[in-house]
Amino acid sequence: MAFKGIVGQERILSYLSEALLKNETPHAYLFEGADGLGKKAVAQQLAMGLICTSKIKPCLKCNSCLKVVSGNHSEVKLIESEGSIKIETIRYLQKEIQLKPYEGKKKVFIINQAEKMTQQAQNALLKTLEEPPSYATIILIVNISSSLLPTIVSRCQVIKFRPIEIQKIQDYLIHNKGLSYEESKVIALFSKGIIGNALKILEDESFQEKRQLLVDITKELLRGKTLLALENGSLLTSQKNNIQEFLDLLASWYRDIMIYKETKEYHFIMNYDKIEEINHQASQVNLNKLKDIIYIIEDTKTKLKSNVNFQLNMEVMLLKMQEVISW
């Protein structure tokens, strides 16, 4: 059966399947890539493959595989933490790794978000990576490999997870989630090639409400009334907890207008289901103004990270955007 339920990453899955079949797996892997690309899921299935008792690994059916699925296999340890991963945790790993497996022939340790390891923890892990027991495999999961000591990276087989084709995400949403062609395309485009993003958007009941809010705001900005801009600044209070995401959506709207204005091709834009409004706004604002508006949004995102007054920042952003449009 081999790897199952992973969207995209065929190159990686093929490589790992062949390594398992030939029993040529290294003592340490480093899975690198953005959140939502399936790194943790692949690591867990690789762990299954390493301890699987069937010929085709992982079979996902034998007792060993099922124990990993339920999190009850004594030889597979998942290490993750909401805060930093301290040296005490790595010392626990070092003690466990020295104990020979009694349930099967392999031991597997997965360290999720390994960049959370403190400097002391990384130095301690380095000693284990230098002389690991032959029966042990360590899998580190990170967003960016440079967040770890170069000496750790050099002792691992680095596997880079990359964004996948939008079409594959759309096909998955249609066939596995029952979405229509139009619904699946919009979500796939906003996922940026990351299946985890697509699933989050699908589960976010307010996603379409956010999009409608930004459309309403951009319409009113074109009307050029200062009072409306201030009212919309207050309205954005509802988005305070996820304002960075909302501003990303807002910036994508104006980027779409730029793209459509230059190409007249709706196939290239993310908000393609709103093409009529994009076409209308594209006829009202020139390219230089659109570039200025996007800069204002990005500048606002930066200022919000500095804990500036939220309400004031929103009002200033909208007033600046309106000023640019009204020139």
Results as ranks from 00 to 15, higher is better:
260 Y>S: 06
282 A>I: 07
258 M>N: 05
246 F>P: 03
255 R>T: 07
259 I>Q: 03
262 E>K: 11
277 E>V: 14
287 L>G: 00
265 E>P: 03
287 L>C: 08
248 D>G: 11
261 K>V: 04
256 D>I: 03
262 E>D: 08
246 F>T: 10
253 W>R: 03
266 Y>S: 12
244 Q>F: 14
279 N>G: 14
276 E>G: 07
252 S>G: 10
283 S>M: 10
266 Y>T: 12
276 E>C: 06
253 W>S: 05
248 D>V: 06
281 Q>F: 07
249 L>E: 02
261 K>L: 07
245 E>Y: 05
265 E>F: 12
268 F>Y: 12
269 I>L: 06
260 Y>M: 10
252 S>T: 11
286 N>M: 07
277 E>A: 08
245 E>T: 14
255 R>N: 07
282 A>Q: 02
247 L>C: 00
259 I>M: 01
275 I>M: 11
256 D>Y: 10
266 Y>L: 10
252 S>A: 15
274 K>Y: 13
245 E>W: 07
258 M>G: 04
274 K>H: 10
261 K>C: 03
288 N>E: 14
272 Y>D: 05
255 R>V: 12
285 V>R: 01
254 Y>T: 05
277 E>T: 14
271 N>L: 01
284 Q>L: 15
276 E>L: 13
282 A>R: 04
271 N>S: 07
259 I>G: 02
264 K>H: 10
262 E>H: 09
249 L>Q: 01
264 K>V: 09
264 K>C: 11
287 L>P: 04
244 Q>C: 06
249 L>K: 09
257 I>D: 04
286 N>F: 01
248 D>Y: 04
250 L>I: 05
287 L>Y: 02
281 Q>V: 01
